[in-house]
Nucleic acid binder design. Structure first.
Lengths: 112, 112
DNA sequence: CCCTCATATGTAGTAACGCTACCTATGAGA
DNA sequence: TCTCATAGGTAGCGTTACTACATATGAGGG
């Protein structure tokens, strides 16, 4: 699946990916791929700028480290990020409900 | 709710709004507002260009008429539009499933 | 008669954001 | 040596919903 239609929802997924502890960008990609059974495979050109945006917004905090000779930037949720994630989750449910209402506002909603 | 987060999904809603018969732009706005209990109130600057796009793409077909002294452009789904709508509905379900998987995937199941 | 509102359609310009394509660098394994 | 997986990054593009504005008619109130 392309992340094209993710517009406006990617941030929520990134925050969720950091909810159970810090991860670096590459690991976030793998996490999202695995947690969606391979259906969501984001390109690095999508992930890294998005993480920078979230850091700039103060929702996540990054720190450099070196593991196995490779430098990593690990991100953790800030307090603000935790609140934002909660709001995003609620926002998603609201959004999904609205789309489903509009999409399925049909006299035959369920198979007889 | 703003349609900002609709990016990539608005077309599906517009096609769905025309599924049970032709409507003109203004009526589409009202339909979407009512079918979502007022939660989705789209500005005309969003609707009209979007309808033009869909017509250009051959998914809907428009025709002018005059009702009560006011000109209207009514749109109906083309065959291509009907197929597109089916695909969009399937696409939505897939998309929603992916987002929910990523949003709710927890390595540590919440049941305490 | 005038003014405002609801109806009805439209455009111009802007901003957001995920994309493609590309670049750099290290460690492991063939 | 060569390629792949790992790890980070940027530049520029295309799409798309937005704000703000413009036009026009009919109905209703003052």
């Amino acid at each position: 699946m392309r992340a094209e239609e993710l517009k406006g929802h990617l941030d929520a997924l990134l925050l969720a990916a950091l909810e159970d502890g810090p991860r670096h960008g590459y690991a976030v990609i793998e996490y999202l791929r695995e947690s969606t059974s391979g259906r969501l495979d984001l390109p690095t050109g999508t992930i890294y700028p998005a993480l920078h945006r979230l850091e700039e917004a103060g929702l996540i905090a990054g720190s450099w480290s070196v593991v196995g000779g490779r430098r990593r930037r690990s991100y953790r949720l800030t307090e603000s990020g935790v609140r934002e994630l909660a709001g995003r989750r609620a926002g998603w449910r609201e959004f999904a409900a609205v789309v489903e209402a509009a999409l399925e506002a049909k006299p035959w909603p369920s198979p007889a």
